[in-house]
């Protein structure tokens, strides 16, 4: 369980999140809200990329402030732009990066690389330059690079925003099939329509927190879409 208690974050004297308290226990959680509502900040709090100014964030009881290393392994993070998340020139080098950081041995790295790349039909591309993959394949590679680190939770920050429809469907399917808990920050309402829970951010606070139908309805209404 990820738990936020009275969390506030300011950036350059501007409040970005104000006194947010949440317990995240569901397997599929969507997070929506207009630009600048604080949802990206919220996502970065969950794996300790960002630390709260006030309040605490804990992952399975581990405080993100003091247990950074453990938290980073437990909570994987997939960014909006896979081009910035893929940091090595070749597909197989990139996928190994996170595992090397966690100190996995060579045999484990090789086995898990094969498993992950085969899962997403990237095995034939393993010695290719990541540069030449399609947008959807790059996002799948980014997801693979996180999955091999064996996280219990995966946070997605607008994973389909930059993709065309075909690639969007591929990535949406990949997220649906994950065994892990997925927390998905998005503008893509279709992606989260069948989730267990949807949290709506507005004006740096939680405006709604409910099953998708109700939460999305409130969001549409607040945005003037009736």
């Amino acid at each position: 369980m990820i738990e936020l208690t009275d969390v506030s974050v300011s950036y350059n004297d501007k409040v970005v999140l104000s006194e947010v308290s949440l317990r995240l226990t569901e397997r599929r959680i969507g997070v929506i809200g207009s630009n600048g509502s604080g949802k990206s900040t919220f996502a970065r709090l969950l794996n300790g990329l960002l630390l709260p100014d006030r309040g605490t964030v804990t992952v399975d009881g581990l405080d993100t402030k003091t247990k950074a290393k453990e938290v980073r392994q437990k909570v994987g993070f997939v960014f909006q732009n896979p081009d910035y998340q893929i940091v090595f020139p070749l597909v197989e080098e990139d996928i190994a990066f996170g595992m090397k950081n966690l100190g996995f041995d060579k045999a484990t790295i090789a086995a898990k690389t094969e498993e992950a790349l085969k899962r997403y039909d990237l095995w034939d591309h393993r010695t290719h330059a990541a540069q030449f993959l399609s947008g959807g394949q790059k996002q799948l590679l980014a997801i693979s690079g996180v999955l091999v680190m064996e996280p219990s939770y995966i946070v997605f920050d607008e994973p389909t925003t930059l993709l065309d429809l075909r690639n969007k469907l591929t990535v949406t399917g990949a997220i649906r099939e994950l065994e892990q808990t997925a927390i998905v920050v998005t503008h893509d309402l279709d992606l989260i329509a069948d989730f267990d829970r949807v949290i709506v951010f507005a004006d740096n606070r939680v405006m709604a927190d409910d099953v998708p139908e109700v939460a999305i309805g409130k969001y549409r209404k607040a945005m003037g879409d009736v």
């Binding site: 980073r72 960014f79 996170g98 950081n101 996180v146």
Partner: peptide, 13 residues
Amino acid sequence: DDIADAIEARGYR
């Protein structure tokens, strides 16, 4: 900034 975040999110210290 984004790449540095991505690297640290993947456990690089």
